[in-house]
Amino acid sequence: TYTWNTKEEAKQAFKELLKEKRVPSNASWEQAMKMIINDPRYSALAKLSEKKQAFNAYKVQTE
């Protein structure tokens, strides 16, 4: 089980997950979700809006 003390740690864990699963920077949210949804870190960020925000930040960083 994973635990995160801060929102920032949770966001980092979520981005690490995207990186580890090699989600391409041109992937849509739907494509990315299919690649990461079974990992416990997918739940790091509770709100869908937070997940999408972190995903978009990840995409910008990896382009």
Rank of each mutant, 00 (worst) to 15 (best):
K34F: 09
E20G: 04
K47N: 12
E30P: 12
A13V: 11
K51H: 02
K21P: 01
Q61W: 10
D39I: 01
L18Q: 00
A57G: 05
A10C: 08
Y42N: 02
A32Q: 02
A13R: 05
Q61M: 14
M33P: 00
K15H: 15
A10T: 03
E63K: 08
A32H: 00
A54S: 05
K59R: 10
K19A: 14
L45A: 02
Q53W: 07
K11T: 15
I37R: 11
Q31G: 06
K15V: 14
S43E: 14
M35V: 07
Q61F: 12
L17C: 07
V60R: 14
P24F: 03
K59Y: 04
P40L: 07
K51V: 03
A44P: 01
T6N: 09
T3P: 15
F14K: 00
E30A: 11
A13T: 06
E50V: 03
N5W: 09
P24L: 02
I37Y: 13
T1R: 09
K51A: 04
A44G: 04
A44K: 03
P24Y: 03
A27G: 05
K47W: 07
R22M: 13
K19R: 11
A27K: 03
Y42I: 01
T6W: 04
A44N: 03
E50H: 06
D39H: 01
Y2T: 14
L45I: 12
K34S: 15
E9P: 02
W29V: 02
E9V: 04
Y42H: 02
K47H: 13
S49L: 04
A57M: 10
Q12P: 00
N56T: 08
E63G: 12
Y2M: 15
S25F: 14
K52H: 11
E63V: 13
Q61S: 14
A32E: 00
A13Q: 06
K21C: 08
E8H: 08
Q12W: 09
M33L: 11
R41L: 02
M33D: 05
A13S: 08
K47M: 09
A57P: 02
T6K: 03
K34C: 12
K34G: 12
K47G: 11
K19I: 15
Y42F: 09
F55M: 03
E30G: 08
V60H: 13
K19N: 13
Y58H: 05
A27C: 10
L45N: 01
Y2V: 15
K7R: 07
I36C: 07
A13P: 01
V23Y: 02
Q53A: 11
Q12M: 09
A13D: 06
K51D: 01
Q53G: 07
T62G: 12
K19L: 11
Q53E: 14
E50D: 10
K59W: 04
L48Y: 06
P40N: 07
Q53T: 08
F55I: 03
Q31E: 12
I36M: 04
K52Y: 07
V60G: 08
Q12E: 13
K34Y: 10
P40A: 07
Y42R: 00
A46V: 12
E8V: 06
D39W: 00
T3M: 10
E8A: 13
K52P: 01
V23P: 04
A10P: 04
W29Q: 00
P40K: 07
A13Y: 05
Y42G: 01
P40D: 08
E8K: 09
V60M: 13
E16Q: 09
V23S: 01
E8R: 07
F14Y: 02
Y58Q: 02
A57C: 13
E50W: 08
L18T: 01
L48W: 07
N56W: 13
K15D: 15
W4P: 10
K15P: 01
V60D: 07
S43Q: 14
M33G: 02
T3N: 11
L18P: 00
P24H: 04
Q12Y: 10
T1P: 15
F14Q: 00
A13M: 06
S49D: 12
E50A: 06
V23A: 01
K47F: 07
D39Y: 01
V23L: 04
Y2H: 15
A54W: 06
K52N: 03
S25M: 14
L17D: 00
F55P: 01
R22A: 11
S28D: 09
N56C: 11
A32R: 00
T3C: 15
Q61L: 12
S43R: 11
E20K: 02
K7Y: 10
A57D: 15
Q61G: 11
T1V: 10
N38S: 14
L18H: 01
N5E: 15
L17Y: 02
K34D: 10
